[in-house]
Each structure stands twice: as C-alpha cells, then as structure tokens.
Amino acid sequence: MERRHVLKAGLVLIATSAAASIFRPAGAALRVLSGGNRWHAKETPPPSLVDPSKRMFLSDKEYAQVTAIFDRLIPADELSPSASQAGCVVFIDHQLAGPYGRGDARYRKGPEQKGSATQGDQSLRNAQELYRTGLAELEAYCSKQYGKSFETMSADQQDALLELMESGSVVLGTIPSAALFKVLLANVQEGFFADPLYGGNRDMVGWKMIGFPGARYDYRDVLPLKGQKIDLIPVSLIGRI
C-alpha cells in the first residue's frame, strides 16, 4: 500500500517507449527508395476532450467515496499532488460512462465460472455494475463496522481497510472485496498516467514526475545528443485535436 509501490506498478500502463535509438554500421550509405503505393492511415474520429465540469456516471456519494479511496492509494506528497487533484476521479467517471464502463469488449452471456488466478476476472458484470454495487456494499460494511462512511474515516482506518480488501478479507456481499480493490487500484493508476485528454494526469503531473515525454511523434531531434541529459517537456494529445 506504499505510495511508491502504487505508482511504480502504474508505470507498466505506459506502452510508449520514452527513448529511441538508431544504429547505422560504419560506412553505410543511405538509399532512397521510390515507387510502390503510398500508405495512408485509416481515418478515425479523434478522441473527445473530457470536460471536468460534467458528471457522467458517478453519483455525488459515489464520487466522494472514489475520491477518498483514490487519495489513499495516491496521496499528495513532495512528488506530486493527490490522485483526485490530478483528475483521476474525473477520468474514471467519464470512462465508466463509455465503452469501458459498459463492458462493450467483454463477453457477458455466460455461463459464469470461476477461473484460475491467471485468468483474471471471469464474472459477467461490467465496470459500471462493479462500481455501483461494490461502492454501495462498501458503504454498508463501513456503516456496520465503523459506524461511519469510508470518506469520513481516519486515514489510518482507511488504509487498514484497503489492505484488508486487497487481501480479500472483507466480506462485502455480492462483490469480492479483492476484485473491487484490484479495479480501483488499476483505474487510479490509469488516470494518473493517461493522456490529460481523458481527464486525468492534470497538467501532465504523472508524466513530469517520471520524466515521460508524452505523445511525441519521434525523437530525431535529440538522437545526436548521446550521453547528454535530455529534459523533454511532455506533449499531450490535447494540442493535436
């Protein structure tokens, strides 16, 4: 549950390499190739810029719960602002309202079977159902065990409960606590390192923290600078739509 471990695990979500290199044998000459058909990329509509002022899926209560949970997973410190300050709650609120939340890419016709540990979540529920039901069951659990809501508990109580959820020791009802925790953890990591276009990683704080240069076309301008420290200002897709 240490913040550094949460952020370190989130780095695997970044699929783009932050560096590139070209190797050319000594004395090799450049060749100009001509002829053939020019390749054209398939035209696709650009992604829409998230409006943080619009609420898309989470209720006020759910928004407060997710904010409290996310801010314990990635709290503010000398490295960066908290998850909610970085827009992670805005990010997941909009994601839940779209294909991810609806589970458009998931097979949901059944039958539902419990898979092995390496097969991941085999349930038929989508992310919308997991959040809506899981957060309601978490509220009921906190009310019964602590006499208060998760967002009003102390930081120590919240951390202890999240650790129990991660281990699967909390019985919520219909939603396994470990499954709920796993999704919450993955989503806050995604929001912290996603392109700011999607509402999270506000002002590219996640990228700046780890030195990731963002959505750059290529690195030809810095290739000759071998052995030198290169500080590249991150680039977002926002400026390209």
Score class of each variant (00 low, 15 high):
43 E>D: 05
95 Q>M: 08
67 T>F: 02
68 A>N: 11
95 Q>W: 04
45 P>M: 10
48 S>R: 13
57 F>H: 02
120 G>V: 09
40 H>R: 14
95 Q>T: 06
50 V>I: 15
124 L>E: 04
113 Q>A: 12
65 Q>W: 12
96 L>Q: 03
125 R>L: 01
58 L>C: 04
133 T>F: 02
68 A>P: 14
82 S>C: 13
56 M>E: 10
127 A>G: 03
85 Q>G: 03
42 K>F: 10
109 K>T: 13
58 L>P: 08
96 L>E: 02
133 T>P: 05
91 F>N: 00
132 R>L: 03
140 A>H: 11
71 D>Y: 07
132 R>I: 02
99 P>K: 08
128 Q>S: 13
87 G>I: 01
89 V>T: 10
87 G>H: 04
54 K>R: 12
41 A>C: 08
123 S>P: 01
77 D>E: 15
50 V>Y: 09
125 R>A: 01
89 V>G: 03
77 D>T: 05
95 Q>C: 05
108 R>N: 08
55 R>S: 14
55 R>A: 13
44 T>E: 13
104 D>N: 04
132 R>T: 10
47 P>F: 15
73 L>T: 15
78 E>S: 11
142 C>R: 14
92 I>T: 02
89 V>C: 01
91 F>P: 00
42 K>M: 10
103 G>F: 10
51 D>T: 14
101 G>T: 07
96 L>N: 03
47 P>A: 13
53 S>H: 08
61 K>N: 08
109 K>R: 15
114 K>P: 11
57 F>D: 01
120 G>I: 06
115 G>P: 09
85 Q>W: 00
70 F>W: 07
61 K>T: 06
71 D>M: 05
83 A>G: 10
